[in-house]
Design a protein around this nucleic acid. Structure first.
Length: 88
DNA sequence: CGTATGACGTGCA
DNA sequence: GTGCACGCCATAC
């Protein structure tokens, strides 16, 4: 394991943490900002295994416009997005 | 260290 | 427009 790989994870958290309220980013966008535009898969994995309470991962959605998933049940995710007006 | 899994994306039928 | 299959990266066990 190299620190570079760990940096990617840290970057993902940082990027997601910078997402303003009422705004959403796609996994691809986050992965691109993290330094690997093709690691959108790993991004979801990182959030899934290392879900941090300070990270609004609920603002990260799929490129299809779908919410995607969340912590085992996306009810809270959709709920928050709805409250922020991100979802119709 | 190697294998398997996964909150995804894109292409083709 | 919808469905199926493959490919990709990083993490965790």
């Amino acid at each position: 394991m190299k620190a570079d790989k760990k940096a990617f994870k840290q970057k993902v958290f940082e990027v997601v943490r910078k997402i303003p309220k009422g705004k959403t980013l796609t996994y691809k966008e986050v992965a691109k900002r993290a330094g690997s535009p093709k690691a959108f898969r790993a991004v979801g994995n990182i959030l899934n295994t290392n879900y941090n309470p300070d990270i609004p991962c609920h603002r990260v959605i799929r490129s299809n416009g779908k919410v995607g998933g969340y912590n085992r049940g996306r009810t809270e995710k959709v709920r928050k997005l709805k409250q922020e007006g991100v979802i119709k």
